[in-house]
Design a binder for these strands. Structure first.
Ligand SMILES: [Mn+2]
Ligand SMILES: [Mn+2]
Ligand SMILES: [Mn+2]
Ligand SMILES: [Mn+2]
Lengths: 220, 220
DNA sequence: ACAATAAGTTAGATTAGCCTAACAATAAAA
DNA sequence: TTTTATTGTTAGGCTAATCTAACTTATTGT
């Protein structure tokens, strides 16, 4: 088993892969906030231990073993987040940091029980899919709210960032997963939109926000 | 804040102090399973950082700050154990190892919520007191089952060891906290006892086991 | 095609936490 | 009171994970 540190590297590679971003040393360096030489050195070690494949100046690839470990960490992270929200009643904005620690807990018993108590959830509190024990995730086919045309409605299904500030912002606006949002108007100048949802009308959302809201179009 | 490693040293010193054992480098070394020179070196560092007081060839003492940190770790450990048993339904024999990891989680929110969900428990699943936020513990005044005379009864209140094998043994014997045990007979030769409890009669317990069962005498 | 920029590499160093081997001090036993 | 056993100390070394400074290779824009 790799150390917690190595688990974090594998997880970071896995996430970049999940988002279709290119996996360079510098991308990794930014993601885990560590100097490039450090990443360079660590990736070599991960390679020696069979978790990744890396050649000078080429992108980093997870081996099957590496992907298995990484998906297991991600699974534990997302199960933990779900547990913290559903069973313990914490807010979706406060669970990520705690899950960063919980994901490294090494106990099948603990996570099996969480999985069972939550009735085998497929998504975490931010709508992100939870990998199963074999690392498989249900594919999600959402589009960004920015892609929805005026007059159309869409249901919020997931977020593509889980920064505390963003989640607190959504709380303040009373937007949650499942909220049906109607695009009333689009301002061409700054690409902001006017939306309506639940009892709220004429709410303005910037493009930055819309980009991060992953929705499913409503066909009426 | 000290590192997880340092937290473990402080916790070990705290536990030895709690059991009234003398706190030497070699005792610590055995407790945390690390060489004596390593402990020696670490204790010096803990001293520099103000967590302990140590002079060559003298016993180690926690500073107020050190005791505060240590009791907080112990609090988190025991709260975690209680949560794993009471809320998650794990057995008292499987929670210690998981709690060894959970105790280092750094989230007031997480542990406050656990404390709240458990309705502010005073004892962990093994009957050991949980320090409050100020490090205070309710004093327990139990005696070992070995000290109970034939004909007398006593209620099991706590254990002074929580090795998995011991707890599994107690499960097999159907002995739990709260079980009222009557001493029927004492064998002088090997100090084993014959006891009765619930529907069970003529159960033989060795002195080794009785020593570890902390009870409260029943006055009838 | 070439200069500028971005990305990756190498070397050398540091800190935390651990070890063993050899030695010194204290406490316990004879 | 010596001897023996326990306990503590010092010295020297190791690995994991990090850093900065200086340099090299690749990519990009003109
Ligand atoms: Mn998260
Ligand atoms: Mn999440
Ligand atoms: Mn425990
Ligand atoms: Mn316990």
């Amino acid at each position: 088993m790799p150390s917690d540190t190595k688990e974090n590297y594998l997880k970071a590679i896995y996430s970049l892969e999940e988002n279709g971003e290119k996996i360079s040393l510098s991308a990794l360096s930014k993601r885990i906030d560590v100097s490039i030489p450090t990443v360079n050195n660590m990736v070599k070690r991960l390679q020696e231990e069979g978790w990744v494949i890396y050649e000078k100046y080429k992108p980093i690839i997870l081996t099957d073993e590496g992907r298995k470990v990484a998906s297991h960490i991600v699974r534990k992270h997302r199960l933990a987040e779900m547990f913290l929200v559903e069973t313990m009643g914490l807010g979706w904005e406060e669970v990520h940091d705690i899950a960063e620690d919980l994901e490294h807990i090494n106990s099948e018993t603990f996570f099996n029980r969480i999985d069972e108590m939550l009735d085998y959830p497929k998504f975490d509190p931010h709508g992100t899919p939870i990998p199963d024990k074999n690392g498989k995730t249900v594919s999600q086919n959402y589009e960004s709210l920015s892609a929805i045309e005026p007059g159309q409605s869409a249901v919020l299904r997931a977020l593509d960032h889980e920064q505390k500030e963003f989640l607190v912002f959504l709380n303040k606006k009373n937007i949650a997963l499942g909220t049906e949002i109607k695009i009333e108007e689009k301002e061409p100048f700054d690409e902001s939109v006017v939306v309506a949802y639940d009892q709220f009308k004429n709410v303005v959302l910037t493009k930055d926000v819309c980009d991060k809201l992953l929705v499913e179009k409503v066909h009426k």
